[in-house]
């Protein structure tokens, strides 16, 4: 099986001498192709920092990161941009859709940026929109659709280029439970049927229970790791809750 993410001893510190804050403390992480991995931990544990570093949006202080065979730390600005465009897909909590573009245009944006041929581009958009069930709203603008629809649009945009790695930062954070379940089902399907590799940061144990593996971080260090294996989603959910209470993130984080 192919290794998509390989991160070694990633360290990230903020601040100047005397007042150093370590957000990530020598974290190692390996993700195989087709895995759906969740990252959990209390607020300030470094989840988002980790995701940003892997997303090439932020730079680690030290360490090594290889994604789909590319060492990303030596790349310059332009190479990184192209890398993000071609290899990565993003889903954010606040959707990050462009208000001036229709749903369809938002989805096809990465393909347009990669200067893909129009006919192929339209085909891809149709296929992806169907998968997420948003074909009917393709010509609407973001402010005309619901939060769930927005997030499914964002997800469509993220996978339309068939990225090597899909990064999701609290994708269900702003959704009601029905919309959240729909999205999570779609992501799970994506990883099972199309071997999509997904890395998802979440606070939500319910969302995490859809993953195949969940990594827990505390104070910038790896705390533990849970693998779903053969257990049912419900059992896995319970296990996640147990770890969370051991982690002591407070009850607020468990909902």
């Amino acid at each position: 099986m192919k290794q998509i993410v390989e991160a070694r001893k990633i360290k990230k510190t903020y601040g100047a001498r005397g007042n150093l804050f370590t957000a990530l403390d020598e974290i190692d992480l390996t993700v195989q192709e087709g895995e759906f991995v969740g990252i959990m931990g209390p607020s300030g544990a470094g989840k988002s920092t980790l995701l940003n570093v892997l997303a090439t949006i932020d730079e680690p202080t030290s360490g090594e990161i290889t994604i789909d065979g590319f060492t990303i730390l030596n790349m310059n600005e332009e190479q990184l941009s192209n890398f993000r465009r071609d290899k990565l897909g993003f889903i954010f909590q606040d959707y990050n859709l462009l208000d001036t573009l229709t749903v369809k245009e938002n989805i096809l944006l990465p393909l347009a940026l990669a200067k893909i041929d129009v006919i192929k581009l339209e085909e891809r958009v149709e296929a992806v929109a169907e998968k997420f069930g948003i074909t009917a709203i393709l010509d609407k603008y973001p402010y005309q659709i619901s939060g769930g629809q927005k997030q499914r649009t964002a997800a469509s945009r993220a996978i339309v280029t068939k990225p090597s790695l899909l990064l999701a930062d609290e994708p269900t954070g702003a959704l009601d439970s029905k919309s959240a379940t729909d999205l999570l089902e779609s992501l799970k399907e994506l990883s099972e049927q199309e071997q999509a590799t997904i890395l998802m940061v979440t606070h939500d144990a319910y969302a995490a229970s859809y993953c195949g593996r969940v990594i827990f971080i505390k104070d910038g260090k790896l705390f533990t790791e849970l693998v779903k294996g053969k257990s049912s989603r419900k059992e896995f959910f319970q296990k996640v809750l147990d770890v969370l209470s051991a982690l002591g993130g407070g009850t607020n984080d468990i909902i």
Binding site: N82, R85, F90, N96, P110
Partner: peptide
């Protein structure tokens, strides 16, 4: 914010 989004999904500074 729109431009931040664009940067995140891989539009380089020059573009």
């Amino acid at each position: 914010t729109s431009y931040e989004i664009l940067r995140k999904i891989g539009v380089n500074k020059r573009a």
